[in-house]
Design a protein around this nucleic acid. Structure first.
Lengths: 244, 244
DNA sequence: CCAGTACACTGGTCTGACCAGTAGCCCAGA
DNA sequence: TCTGGGCTACTGGTCAGACCAGTGTACTGG
């Protein structure tokens, strides 16, 4: 006979569970409002501090947002990758996840995104991607270029039609950028850097337009490797080459 | 001239930030203890409710754990993918992420894990994998088989040497299993199902042993497809075939 | 019709209290 | 010597009540 470990279920956890359930089941839609804390405490039959702790947890998970003074009460938020991003960030800092591992992971994700995008892209997707590329070419300054670059990758990921690829791509790009942004912003010749990237992106886009998934994936991975390999410690670069 | 949006920084957030920083910088190692709440409130110069809300947030992020009655105070936890898993779970429920998207994502991750594993595996890895496969073969009953299956995939991921692949693989497998476990447990002929899976895993392992990354990846993706495609709605199966 | 102002109410924080439950200690009994 | 049972000091969980800064809204006077 097997027994299960018994864990006390605290009052605030039951409140979290109830509200979470209401959000996920769709009974509470984004934009709708929860009752105020004083109202909630009568509905749940608990003290205000208990209600507040429950709301804090939900707030940390980015399910709700509450602002003082708003008589409409806490707002139910739309799902966003923010919490996911923070979790992954934490894990990346805690485990020994360096740029090499992040880049390897990004090569996997971006490669697959491009592969799928090339096979699923519609004409509308292509014109969106053309616009994104044009925005990169027209960018004035590095910061703007970087934003346009992110937007381009995001557009590719959305073309792959898989929200998980979109979100995890977003997350990993964010973490990578954060790790090397200071190195990049101090790079000696950012203009030629931007030109190289632009050329890479144009090549990739042509492969996507030609519906050549394998090439698109390979080009995307190669571009990532070429652009970032210099920031990877030499003894870790062997991790990346198997993916080329 | 450009201004930044100003957001009020609450007291509990500053406490969270300080403790988070201490954990990430390594000043607080897993297993160590934080002072009790009453002690923290004097150190931070705030009321207990403020301290508690901060601890609640850290607890929701699985950075600490506190139990009543323990005079040693809240415990600093080792990094775990638990929070990441919950975040992804939430997002999967909120976005319209169905089995098709999850499976597609898993084919991407598992495929890459196998590719890397085949190229990086050592003899020690191979014997670990052999053991995992033997455990699957020796499994008595579906539940045990399923656990052994998960362990095998986990071993493959670890052989790929990328913690991100390990964690996201773990997460996605968990979500997939949760979505279809009831269908699987009611499957008419689970014995032949398990035999099929076992054969697939043996093939994959041979490719890994032969250091044939491309084959290992392809076999792994094909195995996923074969095993799960029947649970994917027919009109979504086109998402999966480009990855074969 | 609009700017300005009051007001009711929100969430953020503090204080002080009580409770159930735990770790660690001491001590009686084997 | 070891073991089990209390005892105790303390923990975190919860509640109640209070105050404050700041917000949305409705009312006001121009």
């Amino acid at each position: 006979m097997q027994f299960e470990p018994v864990a006390p279920v605290h009052a605030y956890q039951r409140i979290v569970a109830q509200i979470e359930e209401a959000v996920y089941s769709g009974r509470l839609k984004p934009g709708e409002r929860l009752p105020g804390e004083r109202e909630l405490m009568t509905q749940f039959g608990v003290g205000r501090s208990t209600v507040r702790e429950a709301l804090r947890v939900l707030q940390a998970a980015e399910l709700i947002r509450s602002r003082p003074g708003d008589p409409r009460g806490p707002e139910v938020l739309a799902a966003s990758p923010g919490a996911l991003q923070r979790s992954m960030h934490r894990l990346a800092r805690a485990e020994h996840v360096g740029l090499a591992e992040l880049l390897q992971f990004r090569m996997v994700l971006d490669g697959s995104s491009h592969l799928l995008a090339a096979q699923l892209r519609t004409d509308a997707d292509l014109s969106t991607l053309d616009e994104a590329l044009a925005a990169m070419a027209a960018a004035d300054g590095y910061a703007e270029f970087s934003r346009a670059d992110v937007a381009f990758h995001d557009a590719i990921a959305r073309t792959s039609r898989n929200p998980l690829l979109v979100v995890s791509g977003e997350v990993v790009r964010g973490v990578v950028l954060e790790l090397i942004e200071d190195k990049l912003s101090h790079a000696p010749d950012r203009t030629s850097l931007m030109e190289t990237w632009l050329r890479h992106h144009a090549e990739v886009l042509e492969a996507v337009r030609a519906a050549d998934g394998a090439s698109a994936a390979r080009l995307a991975r190669q571009a990532l490797y070429d652009n970032y390999v210099e920031y990877v410690p030499e003894d870790r670069r062997a991790l990346l080459t198997p993916l080329l």
